[in-house]
Simulated scan of single mutants.
Amino acid sequence: MAAADCSPAPPAPAHPLANPGYGKRSAPEQLPRSEADFVHLYPREASIAAYIDRLPEGSAIGYKALAANIAAYGQQACASSLRRLSDAGHLRLIKEHLLLADNSFRWVTRTYFSRTSRDDAWWKTFVRGLCGVDVTERERERERERERQQVRDQAPGTEAETAPEAEAQPAGSSAATARSLAYLTLAQLGRADARMTLSAAECAALEGLAAKWLARGATPDHLTVALTAGLPSPLHSPAAIARTRLENKMPPEPVNARTIAAQTVEVNRVVMVCIGCDNDETTVKLIRGVCVDCRTEMEAEMEAEAGMETAGEAKGDGGSSEPARTLVDTARRAAEIRASAGLKSRKGKRGRK
């Protein structure tokens, strides 16, 4: 019998944040999270949508960032899924032209995500409503909401369940109320993954490093993801894993991290951008956030994939054999459909980074 390989698997990188001012933004007025949020999607798109839904604000959610952090799917699959999520009403890519306090201008690109599917009319109304918004106040409100959420998370009863030392402290004692947000975030890691449950002494020892993360702009959610994503199996020492990640993945000092929010006066122009190719609505026609060219390619891919699945089922293998050949046939069929429609080849164009 061959000896088992007990060496730990290398940990997957924590999902990265986008540059300041960019990245994921949650659309307003969403319904509460439920198990039925993405049941109308195909399994791949449902899985990626659920992953995006749980990422903190400002996360990078281009196809490269997703492929680097979701082991099951590569860049081509993630790029295709982003187009399909836009078509299903869950995503829109928006460019905002910001007027800054010093009378200079700056474009930023944000990906707005909604777990609640929206139709094209809703998205268009929402996007037009962004024009003229005081971004400084908007960012302040986001910060206030984060602070309110942190207060809710630390409400009486929650801390007693998650903080290792809370049970030993009398209600209202200074030691129980003086715990920092960094300490509490570490103490709650066991909620995200039971294997990362830390003792009171371990939380205290790592508190300083975690506090540096928060001081450099990381949110408690981002810190939690960084310390629990892609854990090795078996996991022998959660405290050692936490220390290594806190030290090696420390965010850079926020030299200009709040420059946009601090200086912005308002959004003076907003354009919707194709999620597949970055062309904006002033140069191409967009239908549910996808331009005509990218839509043709998306529909060709879906048709080719459906054909491959049907052929696989006819063979009795469930369509799961020869995945590499399936991808090649899908791309070939998409190219054929594009050529028959008189569209140019999209060689080398794969969507957002």
Rank of each mutant, 00 (worst) to 15 (best):
E159M: 12
V133C: 09
L246E: 06
S321E: 09
A311Q: 15
L227E: 08
L235N: 01
M272V: 13
T158Y: 07
C291P: 03
E281K: 06
E266I: 05
R295S: 09
T125W: 13
P164V: 01
A261R: 12
A339P: 00
A339E: 14
A261G: 08
Y63E: 04
S320V: 15
E147K: 12
C277I: 02
Q76R: 10
L327E: 14
V270K: 04
A71I: 10
E303Y: 08
R295M: 14
G58V: 06
Q76E: 08
A49F: 15
S117P: 10
E253L: 07
A210S: 05
R325W: 15
P43W: 09
A79P: 01
L93N: 10
D119S: 04
A314G: 07
A14T: 05
R179G: 01
I260Y: 04
D221E: 13
E309F: 05
G208N: 02
S340T: 15
G157R: 10
P8K: 15
T330A: 09
V273L: 06
D120I: 01
P32K: 03
T228D: 06
Y22G: 03
K315M: 05
L99N: 01
K349Q: 10
N69W: 05
L246V: 04
L214R: 12
E141K: 13
L223K: 08
R245D: 11
D120W: 09
R44N: 11
L41C: 13
L214P: 01
S47V: 00
G312F: 14
S340E: 15
C277L: 01
A261C: 06
Q169C: 09
G157H: 12
R142P: 00
E45F: 05
S345D: 15
F105N: 03
A239H: 14
M298E: 06
D280A: 00
E301I: 04
R346A: 03
V39D: 13
D134T: 10
V328I: 08
R142A: 06
I275F: 12
P251Y: 12
L206D: 01
L186H: 03
A9V: 06
A46R: 07
A77E: 14
A163Q: 02
N69R: 04
T330I: 06
P220N: 00
E147V: 07
C131V: 12
V284E: 01
S59C: 09
D329C: 07
R325K: 14
S104Y: 08
E253G: 06
N279E: 12
R195A: 04
A68T: 05
Y73R: 03
E207F: 00
E301L: 07
D317R: 11
E322K: 11
G342F: 14
A67R: 10
S320A: 08
C274A: 12
Q154A: 13
R269N: 11
E336H: 01
C203A: 04
P232Y: 09
P220I: 01
R288L: 02
E309G: 00
A18K: 10
G318L: 08
V108D: 14
Q169D: 08
V270E: 02
K95L: 08
A160M: 07
V151T: 15
L93T: 03
S237W: 12
A187D: 03
H97N: 13
D221G: 07
S173C: 02
G316R: 15
T116Y: 10
C294T: 04
P170I: 00
A9C: 11
A101Y: 00
